[in-house]
Deep mutational scan, measured.
Amino acid sequence: MTVRVDGVDYEFSSLEEAVRFALKMAKSKGAEVQLHNGTFHVE
């Protein structure tokens, strides 16, 4: 599972870890999280 934040990809071994990271980053940026074909994008 890959989480992309500001064009940088972060790899996670589990969906749970990836979701937690994506939500944490989105909250800190006041951004939204989108899921596309198994890849999260924080914008």
Rank of each mutant, 00 (worst) to 15 (best):
24 K>R: 09
31 A>H: 10
12 F>W: 01
4 R>S: 08
14 S>T: 12
3 V>I: 05
8 V>T: 05
18 A>T: 01
18 A>Y: 02
13 S>R: 09
42 V>P: 11
4 R>Y: 05
17 E>A: 09
17 E>V: 03
9 D>A: 08
5 V>K: 01
41 H>M: 08
8 V>D: 02
37 N>T: 06
34 Q>I: 14
18 A>M: 04
8 V>P: 00
11 E>S: 12
32 E>S: 14
6 D>W: 05
41 H>P: 13
28 S>H: 11
18 A>G: 01
15 L>N: 04
8 V>C: 15
40 F>Q: 13
39 T>E: 13
27 K>M: 11
23 L>S: 10
12 F>Y: 01
9 D>W: 09
34 Q>W: 15
16 E>L: 10
28 S>C: 15
38 G>V: 05
5 V>A: 02
25 M>V: 09
11 E>V: 13
9 D>N: 10
17 E>N: 02
10 Y>G: 00
8 V>Q: 07
34 Q>H: 15
16 E>W: 12
40 F>D: 10
18 A>P: 00
19 V>N: 03
34 Q>A: 09
38 G>I: 09
29 K>C: 15
37 N>Q: 04
21 F>R: 01
9 D>T: 11
11 E>Q: 13
10 Y>C: 10
34 Q>P: 04
22 A>K: 02
18 A>Q: 00
17 E>I: 02
23 L>H: 13
7 G>S: 03
37 N>D: 13
9 D>L: 12
8 V>G: 01
11 E>T: 12
30 G>Q: 06
42 V>K: 07
37 N>K: 08
36 H>N: 09
39 T>P: 09
15 L>E: 04
37 N>M: 05
31 A>E: 05
9 D>P: 05
1 M>R: 08
21 F>Y: 04
17 E>P: 00
23 L>D: 13
43 E>W: 11
32 E>I: 14
31 A>T: 11
24 K>L: 11
32 E>V: 14
1 M>V: 12
37 N>S: 04
36 H>S: 07
16 E>Y: 09
35 L>W: 13
24 K>N: 10
14 S>V: 03
18 A>I: 03
24 K>C: 15
34 Q>R: 14
24 K>S: 10
20 R>Q: 11
19 V>H: 09
10 Y>I: 03
18 A>N: 00
35 L>C: 15
35 L>E: 04
25 M>W: 07
19 V>K: 09
29 K>R: 13
43 E>N: 10
5 V>M: 05
42 V>Y: 06
2 T>G: 02
21 F>T: 01
34 Q>Y: 15
30 G>H: 10
17 E>D: 10
39 T>S: 14
27 K>N: 10
5 V>E: 00
28 S>Q: 14
30 G>D: 06
29 K>L: 14
43 E>A: 10
26 A>E: 04
9 D>H: 05
11 E>W: 14
28 S>W: 10
2 T>M: 09
18 A>H: 00
11 E>F: 14
42 V>S: 09
5 V>F: 07
22 A>E: 01
17 E>S: 04
31 A>M: 14
25 M>A: 06
13 S>G: 09
10 Y>E: 00
3 V>M: 02
23 L>Q: 12
22 A>Y: 07
20 R>W: 07
23 L>W: 08
20 R>F: 06
37 N>A: 04
12 F>H: 00
29 K>S: 11
26 A>P: 01
36 H>R: 14
4 R>M: 06
1 M>H: 13
24 K>H: 12
32 E>L: 13
1 M>W: 15
3 V>G: 00
32 E>C: 15
21 F>V: 01
11 E>C: 15
38 G>C: 15
13 S>H: 10
2 T>V: 11
28 S>R: 11
1 M>C: 15
1 M>S: 05
12 F>K: 00
36 H>W: 08
12 F>S: 00
20 R>A: 12
8 V>E: 05
4 R>L: 04
8 V>Y: 06
25 M>L: 06
38 G>W: 07
31 A>L: 12
30 G>T: 06
7 G>I: 02
27 K>T: 10
7 G>F: 03
30 G>V: 05
41 H>F: 14
21 F>E: 03
11 E>A: 12
39 T>G: 12
2 T>Y: 12
16 E>Q: 09
5 V>L: 05
38 G>F: 10
26 A>C: 11
29 K>T: 12
8 V>S: 02
43 E>S: 12
26 A>M: 08
29 K>F: 11
23 L>Y: 13
36 H>L: 13
29 K>E: 08
14 S>N: 09
28 S>N: 11
12 F>V: 00
9 D>Y: 11
14 S>F: 02
21 F>W: 06
27 K>P: 02
